[in-house]
Simulated scan of single mutants.
Amino acid sequence: MTSRRLDAELILGGAASAPLLVLREPVSFWGGVDDQDGTIIDRNHPQQGTSLAGTALLMDGSRGSSSSSSTFLECVRLGTAPAILLFTERDTILTVAAAAAWEIYGTGPTVLILPEMPDLAGVHTITVDDEGVLHARSDVEETSASGGRT
């Protein structure tokens, strides 16, 4: 297994690890995600039926109503929210909901901002260590320019 460090700014939360889920399009939690099981229910979303629960969710940002924060907060309460939120754009709606979850429930997702959408081909797990450093883990062994393993 290999691990590589990714540039990211830790917004809130702490150490966490979860399977990576990349959304091809943004989703609105208000009417687009079922808070009971964390699945995408928006009939127009290309990943309808995909569960967000317990994932390291990577997307540019969310879509839609500020009411998404209430649905997201309910997902945290029910244990159906993503474990890690990874954004490439600042997302105040879900970040405020995550902060509220930490304040109200004492738990919530770790939130990070990435400077750009990373190439995560082959990556299966995202880990945030105790210092807030983001690592992408894959089963693919990297090779050096000379062809040897690193």
Rank of each mutant, 00 (worst) to 15 (best):
M1V: 01
S3N: 09
S3D: 10
D7G: 06
A8D: 00
A8C: 00
L10K: 04
L10R: 05
I11K: 15
I11P: 15
S17V: 10
A18S: 09
P19M: 05
L21R: 14
L21S: 05
V22S: 07
L23Q: 01
L23G: 03
E25H: 08
P26H: 02
S28H: 02
F29V: 02
F29E: 00
W30S: 00
G32M: 03
V33I: 14
Q36V: 05
D37P: 13
D37Q: 08
G38K: 00
T39L: 06
I40L: 01
I41C: 15
D42F: 02
D42N: 08
Q48A: 12
G49E: 04
G49V: 04
G49I: 05
S51F: 01
L52Q: 01
T55R: 15
M59Q: 13
D60S: 06
S62H: 12
T71V: 15
L73Y: 09
V76F: 10
V76M: 09
V76G: 13
R77D: 15
R77F: 09
L78I: 07
L78N: 15
L78R: 14
G79M: 01
A83F: 07
F87N: 02
F87I: 01
E89L: 06
I93K: 04
T95R: 06
V96D: 12
A98G: 03
A98L: 01
W102T: 06
W102R: 10
W102G: 11
I104M: 09
I104L: 12
I104T: 11
Y105P: 12
Y105C: 05
T107K: 12
G108Q: 05
V111Q: 08
I113A: 02
L114V: 03
E116I: 03
P118Y: 06
L120E: 13
H124Q: 12
T125H: 06
T125N: 08
I126H: 11
I126Y: 10
T127S: 10
D129S: 14
D130L: 04
E131A: 11
L134V: 11
A136N: 01
R137G: 03
S138N: 13
S138G: 15
S138Y: 09
D139A: 15
E141V: 07
E142V: 09
T143M: 14
T143K: 15
S144D: 12
S144R: 07
A145I: 10
A145P: 06
G147A: 11
G147W: 11
R149P: 15
R149A: 14
